[in-house]
């Protein structure tokens, strides 16, 4: 259930970033999650439309990239992917392993639609009867 707060955090960042860049819509977000991050992509995916409703990010497509948990063993030197949460070398079962990846949790990229400023007609043209003052 902590994913609700995390999803809100993802949304807030996307909205801030979109506003900063003058965008009027967030259409997609790519999120990278490590296998040991403890954050469930399914939950974030479920919560996102609920928190994004009525915002610039409503309807945005979420894509998740899973980063596997990898370790390097100090005893046998093998570099391998962990099958679960256990920090043991899958090759020799040693606990002297260095975690190379797996705890990541970050927003990698987003797609925004920027306001098309060329479509905005100059004020004067919209109001033809405006007296020419300058």
């Amino acid at each position: 259930m902590h994913e609700l707060a995390i999803t809100q955090g993802i949304l807030n960042f996307a909205l801030d970033e979109a506003t900063k860049r003058g965008a009027d819509k967030v259409t997609a977000l790519t999120v990278s999650l490590g296998a040991l991050s403890g954050i469930m992509a399914d939950c974030v995916e479920t919560y996102f439309p609920l928190v994004a409703e009525g915002t610039l990010a409503e309807g945005a497509k979420l894509t998740f990239r899973r980063i596997s948990a990898r370790v390097r063993c100090a005893d046998c030197g093998t570099e391998s992917e962990l099958p679960d949460f256990r920090l043991r070398c899958p090759a020799c079962t040693s606990r002297k392993v260095e975690l190379l990846s797996g705890r990541e949790a970050y927003i990698e990229s987003m797609e925004i639609e920027e306001k098309n400023r060329t479509n905005v007609e100059p004020f004067r043209e919209k109001v033809p009867h405006l007296p020419k003052l300058f």
Partner: peptide, 14 residues
Amino acid sequence: MEIKVIHQIMEWNE
């Protein structure tokens, strides 16, 4: 338009 951001998800709490 796609933009690269690389923003830590937990940063708001951290």
